[in-house]
Design a protein around this nucleic acid. Structure first.
Lengths: 218, 218
DNA sequence: AATTATTAATGTGTCGACAATATATGTTGA
DNA sequence: TCAACATATATTGTCGACACATTAATAATT
């Protein structure tokens, strides 16, 4: 089962997506269709299909008759994303408190415990460096059971957030406080207190943003 | 100037977008690429490009090797959108209060006055039936000066909201209260009170959603 | 007659080639 | 030497045709 036989365009999308997220293709660099098509041994049609989807999740930008460029990262754009996340994930936490299932609660608590162990073991460093933090947020969004919210955060914005985390690094000393904040959010959701869950999630994300503002204030 | 000479795919997108939004192509109906390509007298490649963009703004859904269907509307999906709007437009109002320019404030106030006149003249009915209400929200989002927020609301979700408004109609008796709520939001933004602006905008959208929940509770 | 197998049709996915546009190169004139 | 124009090259946009998957229609078996 779950034997999704993928199209060429799908595979090309996956390839380019990770290549862009991990910086193998430099931010701001131009994407030459003939060259890439030859390197990946696919037709330009399939490649263009893939590029179209990359554009949909904001990993590339296209200009008419000029072509596609890998998105260029900036402090300002990152902060914009944090504002959007504060709004959307705050709402996601609120809805999760209303709609989460019993199984999802236990799964979320298990995830939180696993994170706690990892952070304690690694002394706070390694975990948040990788995409572990995103996993937590990902699960809460899923538990909102709002398909559009899920699509926006887990399909459209997800890869871009990974890209920033990958390339800006995650030097944060906020591992322990962030972990606490996570546990508060889980408690509020488990209690079914949507108002509190949204408040806590928004504060959590706002603190992350402020932390970044501090660190990269040129 | 502003003489954007458009691609074929752009024109096809515009054509199909309005056709779908206005219901000329029925919700849930299948899109046959060969047939449409022949009717519009364009190649399938250009048509597929356009369909890809329609998918990006959720006007059609595509399944691999099966094809594209016009999105089917439902009460549940509409309420999901309202939750997303409450979160995003609330944040937009907050940011607008911080970032709006003097010119934009006067433009917004003029827009509000025009709306008031129209609603009074038409006795509340006609204006909110058309996309006038969306204009107001559109302007506030623009004034947030958050590019990602603007893109999400004014590019991705905008057409879908128009589609619901077009097809579900807008029977609302809430024209006058809604107009009041609009004016409160503008005041808060003009005062630079982001906290208040967000609160008022969220309440406004939540009331719209509750109103819809009442009307279409089967 | 109902149900499964097999075949025909329709439609989507992919490809290579041509046309339109933008960029790079080279030439001319002041 | 530099600027402006003309030419050449490379890239994107568009097209029609073929390969493959899905659906419909037909045939076969119980």
């Amino acid at each position: 089962m779950t034997n999704m036989k993928k199209n060429i365009a799908d595979r090309v999308f996956d390839t380019l997506c990770t290549a862009i997220v991990e910086g193998e293709i430099a931010p701001g660099s131009k994407i030459s269709e003939p060259e890439l098509a030859k390197r990946l041994k696919v037709s330009r049609a399939s490649l263009r299909e893939a590029i179209g989807r990359l554009e949909a999740c904001s990993l590339v930008t296209r200009k008419a008759n000029i072509g596609a460029r890998v998105v260029s990262l900036s402090k300002e754009k990152l902060l914009e994303i944090y504002h959007v996340r504060e709004a959307l994930e705050g709402m996601a936490a609120r809805l999760a408190a209303q709609n989460i299932t019993a199984e999802e609660i236990t799964q979320l608590q298990q995830l939180l415990k696993r994170h706690t162990d990892e952070v304690n073991q690694a002394d706070g460093a390694s975990y948040f460096q990788r995409s572990g933090d995103l996993d937590f947020h990902y699960h809460i969004v899923q538990s909102s059971h709002n398909e559009r919210l899920i699509s926006l955060l887990c399909n459209d914005l997800y890869h871009l957030m990974r890209m920033y985390r990958y390339q800006f690094g995650r030097v944060s000393q906020r591992a322990f406080p962030a972990l606490d904040e996570h546990s508060y959010v889980v408690s509020a959701i488990a209690d079914g207190d949507g108002e509190m869950a949204e408040l806590l999630m928004r504060n959590h994300i706002r603190r992350s943003r402020r932390n970044i503002e501090q660190m990269i204030k040129t």
